[in-house]
Design a protein around this nucleic acid. Sequence first.
DNA 1: CTGCACGATACCAAAACAATACCAAAAGGG
DNA 2: CCCTTTTGGTATTGTTTTGGTATCGTGCAG
Lengths: 255, 255
Amino acid sequence: MGELFTPEAFEETGGGPLYLQLHRLIAEAIASGRLQPGDSLPSERELAAMTGLSRVTVRKGVAELVASGQLVQKRGSGTFVAPKVEKLEQALSLLTSFTEDMARRGRSVESRWIARGLHAPAPEEVMALGLGVGEKVARLERVRSSDGVPLAIERASLSQAILPDPDGVTDSLYAVLQDRGLRPVRAVQRISAANLNAKDAELLGVSPGVAGLRIERISYLPSGKVVEFTRSLYRGDAYDFAVELKLAPEGERNP
Amino acid sequence: MGELFTPEAFEETGGGPLYLQLHRLIAEAIASGRLQPGDSLPSERELAAMTGLSRVTVRKGVAELVASGQLVQKRGSGTFVAPKVEKLEQALSLLTSFTEDMARRGRSVESRWIARGLHAPAPEEVMALGLGVGEKVARLERVRSSDGVPLAIERASLSQAILPDPDGVTDSLYAVLQDRGLRPVRAVQRISAANLNAKDAELLGVSPGVAGLRIERISYLPSGKVVEFTRSLYRGDAYDFAVELKLAPEGERNP
DNA sequence: CTGCACGATACCAAAACAATACCAAAAGGG
DNA sequence: CCCTTTTGGTATTGTTTTGGTATCGTGCAG
């Protein structure tokens, strides 16, 4: 554990109530990975001795982490970093690209372009992207497969102003956007189910009428501008989303 | 807080009574976003020292902001910029009950019980709930409707130890759990799509084979113990989830 | 002079903060 | 199996910080 909980470490935490300083110290250690899931913290008494605080103050600093599920306490045994199912990054997995998502599962990824270029926008694209009159839309449609099995159809629409050259996108759309400084910070997704029509079923290699997972996503820049409007269709029988959610503590909390 | 409340800052406020100058200064800081919801103001005594005013004058300047709800004061704690009402409730909506979800949309809610009682567990329930041998499972199955239209089938399973009396649940399951101090802080959901079988289609009043949104959820206590295992089936044509996501700051992984 | 808005001083009470002392469950060694 | 040690859990108390309030003085307009 080393130099983690020394009195000096407190100076850098920015002041405030002692128990909050400890809270921050531990929270950051967990977030940064210096404390791994399953790791044990020093006992409360040790922690108190190390930091020069009282034990109750240490407890108070730890309490919120326990309440929020980040730490687990077992009396007679110790305090441990909660075993993470998969961080809360999972919550973001809905927003991560298909590519990364599959890579994390250790599966190969192929993608085949169906359409890629500038087109006259459909009404729903004008609505979602807030297009001006006469403005064209960059459309990227492809079938994503894993290990040779087609899993999803992805149809991304972007304003011409944001992506003037859709043919330049060969791999990750997000990577291209990021290079251009257009990094979305927020997204709204709508998830529903629908029976696949003949065309989409054909693309996914299943029978028409099979259930598909339909996801519409609109991503926003920090400024509030829309970056992309994507409609995806996943095979319901071969793909599912895992999302981890966290609940806020009961009462109001002080900043 | 930096250079926000210096005596010099007052000169630019256009004169008039001192307490009004302070009032304007704070109001503008909030309006401009330099003070964010939840931020704490310096204590009244600090503020007085900073500005060179008396504390009562500071109070008077703050009073109107408090009265109008823009600031919140907690004695012993401090003065804070009023939090937005919406909170982070968005991300939690997936975890809130069907009841609350619909109420928020201003729609009526009816629910009809299909089954409610203690049963011998199915294998997947043993797996998900971590049941011991011989332990029974409390099962709650109902059809949720809104405005007379059936929208979802909800099948909740809980360990007998956690819910010994399933018949006591007449309304919100979460409310009952909360009363017993069993408040989940974390949940993992799996979302997929499936064609409805004859029985489920019948319950939802649609034709067999129609696409349904299937959601499996496992909720956990702070200790890591499983609280509930719920499988829901939503009509794909009549219901969708809206999820708002936030992206982590630049570092690490990125779509 | 009176009335009133303004501002400062002094004191009050609630809440948060922190420390001491003690309790009870669980782990571990004989 | 019992006993000891270690662990987290709790009750109690004192101190500090914070907003809340009562009171008084000042200056200006009527």
